[in-house]
Design a protein around this nucleic acid. Structure first.
Length: 649
RNA sequence: GCUGACGUAGCUCAAACGGUAGAGCGUCGGAUUUGUAAUCCGAAGGCUGUGGGUUCGAGUCCCACCGUCAGCUCCA
C-alpha cells in the first residue's frame, strides 16, 4: 500500500482504500451516492464522529444515516438541534450566557443565563428564529484549540470558562461553530444546520447551574427533533396519549382516589373503587409473603424521637421528616415514623436470638410518613403518607445471597403476573458511607451473584447505593417516560451495628446478623399509580373495581337482572346492576367508559334461555352469549389465575 | 425548597378596554321502556382558591398566602 492511501474496514468486513486524509464523508461518497446523501455521521472504532473528520489507517467505520430508528443518529441530530436552539437564542438575546446543551432521551435541552425567564411567546419566537438558522444551512465546523485559545474565545462567558477549567489537561478541547454561534463542545454534529428540520420546542423551566441548588438558576428550554416530520408527529401524539392515561386524570375519571386541599398535599384519599384495588394488591402480596416464610408485625405510627437518633435517620433525613411533637409537660419528643426499620430492629432485639431461627423475615404492610418537599409531590407517585409492603430479613452472612435471590424471584413473579416491564439497577458504594471496603466487597458480590442466578439483565449505578449498604432497585416508567423507583432490596450494615444486634451461633458465641430491607411493590400508592397508567385504567379482571355490570334491556327485565347480580355476587364476583331508565346504548357507553370488563345485557331472550349476552371489554368479538353458570365459571377462573386479558371462550 | 405558568359550577372550558358570570357533560325532577358507545323536556348548581389592596366598579390590575402543573434539586 502506498503512502498516499489508507484502508478502512466496513461493517461487512470488506476493506476500502481511500486517499490519505479522506473523511467518512469521502468514504460514503466512494461507496455510493445514496449512502452519501443519507450520511450524517460515522461510528469510527465504536465512537461517534463528524462526517468530515479525517479517517485513520485501519479504522472500522460505519456510516450513520438519517434514520429515526437509530438512537445514535437521533443523538447527533438532537445535539445539533440544541446548538441551533442556542444559535437562535443568541440572535434574539445577544447577552445570554450559555450553559450546557446536551441531547437527552427523547430530545434535547439547552440552559441559558438570561435576565428574564422565557415566556411561551418567547419560545414561539425562538422556534421561528431556529427555522431561519436551519434555512441558512451553515455547516457545523469542528476545530481543536489550545486551552489558552479556548479561554480567549469564551472570555465573556463565565459558565463556559468554569466548564473549561474542569477539562483534564490531557483532553483535547474542541469547539464547534455554526454561522455566528460558537460553542465549547465535544461533538459530533450533523454536517449542516439544514439537517435539523423537524423539531419542536416543548417547554421552558428553571434548572440549577451544574445541578447544584446552591448555585444560580438558569433557564432551560426543552425540545425534541427527528429526521422526518412523521416521526416528530408520532412522538407528539405519544405525548398526547400519555397525558390521556395520566393516573391523576384517570384517578378522577374512574373515581379511584382524591387529594384534598383540606387534608393536605401528598396525602391520598382512596375512594371505594381505588381502595378495592389496594385491598386486592394487599391480599395478594400478603399471601405471597406468607408462603415464603414471612411473619407479619405491626408497629406504632409514632415513636420517640430518640429512636431515630439512634438509628441515624434523624441526622440524615430530618428535613424530610414531619416535625417533632411533644405532649403537654412531656419531656420526650415524638415523631411520625418515616420508616419501619428501627421498630423491626427492636423486635428482633427484644430477646436473645439463635442461629436456628434465622433467617427471620418480618413484614409490615402499613403507612409511613415523609415530609417530601412540596415541589417533588406528584399524584400517587410521590406522596407524604406512603404505604410500603415493607419487610426486613435478619440472617447470617451465609444466608444473604439466597435471601436476595428469593426476594428478586418474588419481584419477578409479581411483575410478570402484571405484565409490567421493569429495569434492574445494582447501586454500589457511594462516597459517603459507613463500613469497611471488605464488607462492601462481599455485599456487592452477593448482590451480583443473586442477579446472575436469576438471569435477568441489570445495570450498575456506580455510587448510587445508600450510605449503609448497596441495593438493587427496580425502575418503572410512567406514561410519559419518567422513571420511578419501585421494588428495592437493600443490604444494611448500619442498623445491626447501631442496635448491637446479635444471634448465638453454633459455636455458642454471639455474632452480628445481616439485615436486608426489601419492598416488592415499593409503595402501594406508587405501584397503583404505575398500574393505572400501565393499564390505562382497564385493569385485569381480578383487580377491576367493578368486574361485571348487568344491564336489563327494559324495566321489565330488572328483576331477572337483579337475580343474576345476586348469583354473581354469591360466586364472589364484584357485580352491579345498572337499571337506570336511560337507553341501553347509553348504559353500555357508560360501562365502557368506566372500563368494566364485562357488561351483561339481559332481555327476554336471555331470561328465557338462562343465558347472558356478554360484552367483553377490549375484545375483538364484542359479544357472545352463554349460560350464566358458564360465565361464572369462566370469569372466576380469570380471577383465580390473575389473567391479564378478559377474553372468554 | 427553587424557577416559571396556572387556579371561573362536580368535570371540560367561555366571559373585549375593568362594567356585575355562560355553555356542554354530569346531577336532580319529569316524560320515555329502550337490544350493544350519548332519548327528549325542565330545574338546581358559582363569595370566580383564600386574605388584603387599587377603583365609582375587580373573574379581569397589584400584594401576600394556599394549591395545582412542568422542570430543577432531593428521595431512607
Amino acid at each position: 500500500m502506498s503512502q498516499e492511501t489508507i484502508a478502512v474496514l466496513l461493517p461487512d468486513e470488506t476493506s476500502v482504500e481511500l486517499p490519505a486524509g479522506s473523511s467518512s464523508a469521502d468514504l460514503a461518497a466512494a461507496i455510493g451516492p445514496g449512502l452519501s446523501r443519507a450520511a450524517i455521521a460515522a461510528r469510527v472504532d465504536g465512537e461517534l464522529h463528524d462526517l468530515g473528520r479525517p479517517l485513520e489507517q485501519g479504522a472500522r467505520v460505519e456510516i450513520v444515516t438519517r434514520r429515526d430508528d437509530d438512537p445514535d443518529a437521533l443523538f447527533v441530530l438532537r445535539h445539533s438541534a440544541a446548538h441551533v436552539l442556542a444559535t437562535a437564542v443568541r440572535q434574539l438575546h445577544p447577552g445570554a450566557g450559555i450553559g450546557f446543551g446536551p441531547p437527552i432521551e427523547d430530545g434535547f435541552y439547552y440552559d441559558f443565563d438570561v435576565a428574564e425567564p422565557f415566556t411561551p411567546e418567547d419560545l414561539e419566537r425562538i422556534e421561528a428564529t431556529m427555522l431561519d438558522v436551519v434555512e441558512t444551512d451553515d455547516g457545523f465546523e469542528r476545530r481543536e484549540v489550545s486551552r489558552e485559545e479556548a479561554e480567549e474565545l469564551f472570555e465573556d462567558d463565565p459558565l463556559k470558562l468554569e466548564r473549561l477549567g474542569e477539562i483534564p489537561e490531557e483532553e483535547t478541547i474542541s469547539v464547534y461553530r455554526d454561522g455566528p454561534f460558537l460553542d465549547l463542545c465535544r461533538g459530533p454534529h450533523v454536517p449542516r444546520t439544514g439537517e435539523v428540520r423537524h423539531f419542536k420546542l416543548l417547554h421552558a423551566a428553571g434548572a440549577y447551574w451544574r445541578g447544584d441548588e446552591k448555585r444560580q438558576m438558569l433557564q432551560r428550554i426543552y425540545g425534541t427533533a427527528f429526521y422526518s416530520e412523521e416521526a416528530l408527529q408520532e412522538h407528539l401524539e405519544r405525548l398526547e396519549e400519555a397525558r390521556r392515561r395520566d393516573h391523576r386524570k384517570l384517578g378522577r375519571e374512574l373515581d379511584l382516589f382524591s387529594i384534598q386541599k383540606d387534608i393536605g398535599p401528598g396525602l391520598i384519599c382512596w375512594h371505594p373503587r381505588g381502595a378495592r384495588i389496594q385491598l386486592e394488591l394487599r391480599r395478594w402480596i400478603e399471601r405471597l409473603l406468607e408462603t415464603r416464610g414471612y411473619e407479619f408485625v405491626y408497629t406504632p405510627h409514632v415513636s420517640r424521637e430518640a429512636l431515630f437518633e439512634r438509628s441515624g435517620h434523624l441526622q440524615a433525613y430530618e428535613e424530610n421528616m414531619f416535625p417533632s411533637m411533644r405532649g403537654e409537660g412531656d419531656k420526650e419528643a415524638y415523631r411520625l415514623k418515616p420508616m419501619n426499620c428501627p421498630a423491626h430492629t427492636l423486635i428482633y432485639a427484644s430477646r436473645q436470638r439463635s442461629y436456628r431461627e434465622l433467617p427471620l423475615r418480618l413484614s409490615e404492610i402499613d403507612s409511613v410518613y415523609r415530609f417530601e418537599r412540596s415541589g417533588t409531590l406528584h399524584g400517587l407517585l410521590r406522596v407524604r403518607m406512603l404505604t410500603m409492603d415493607d419487610g426486613h430479613i435478619f440472617c447470617t452472612p451465609d444466608q444473604v445471597e439466597e435471601e436476595i435471590f428469593t426476594a428478586l424471584d418474588l419481584v419477578d413473579e409479581v411483575m410478570t403476573t402484571l405484565g409490567l416491564s421493569y429495569r434492574l439497577d445494582l447501586a454500589t458504594r457511594p462516597e459517603k458511607r459507613i463500613g469497611s471496603d471488605d464488607v462492601w466487597d462481599r455485599a456487592e458480590a452477593s448482590l451480583h451473584e443473586a442477579l446472575e442466578r436469576i438471569g435477568v439483565e441489570y445495570g450498575v449505578d456506580e455510587g448510587g447505593g445508600a450510605f449503609y449498604g448497596p441495593k438493587v432497585d427496580i425502575k418503572f416508567r410512567d406514561a410519559i417516560g419518567r422513571e420511578w423507583q419501585g421494588a428495592t432490596i437493600q443490604l444494611d450494615f448500619n442498623l445491626p451495628e447501631r442496635f448491637e444486634l446479635e444471634y448465638i451461633g453454633p459455636d455458642n458465641a454471639p455474632h452480628r446478623p445481616v439485615m436486608i430491607h426489601r419492598a416488592i411493590f415499593g409503595t402501594l400508592e406508587r405501584f397503583t399509580g404505575v398500574l393505572i397508567e400501565h393499564f390505562a385504567g382497564a385493569f385485569p379482571v381480578w383487580l377491576s373495581p367493578d368486574q361485571v355490570r348487568v344491564l336489563p334491556v327494559t324495566d321489565g327485565h330488572a328483576e331477572g337482572a337483579a337475580a343474576i347480580v345476586a348469583r354473581l355476587r354469591e360466586a364472589g364476583l364484584r357485580a352491579g346492576l345498572d337499571a337506570r331508565s336511560d337507553t341501553l346504548s347509553y348504559r353500555i357507553r357508560d360501562g365502557e367508559l368506566m372500563k368494566v370488563p364485562y357488561l351483561l345485557v339481559v332481555g327476554d331472550r336471555e331470561l328465557e334461555a338462562g343465558t347472558v349476552a356478554v360484552r367483553v371489554r377490549g375484545a375483538e368479538q364484542k359479544q357472545l352469549t352463554m349460560p350464566v353458570d358458564e360465565f361464572v365459571t369462566e370469569v372466576s377462573e380469570k380471577v383465580r389465575a390473575k389473567a391479564l386479558d378478559a377474553h372468554l371462550g
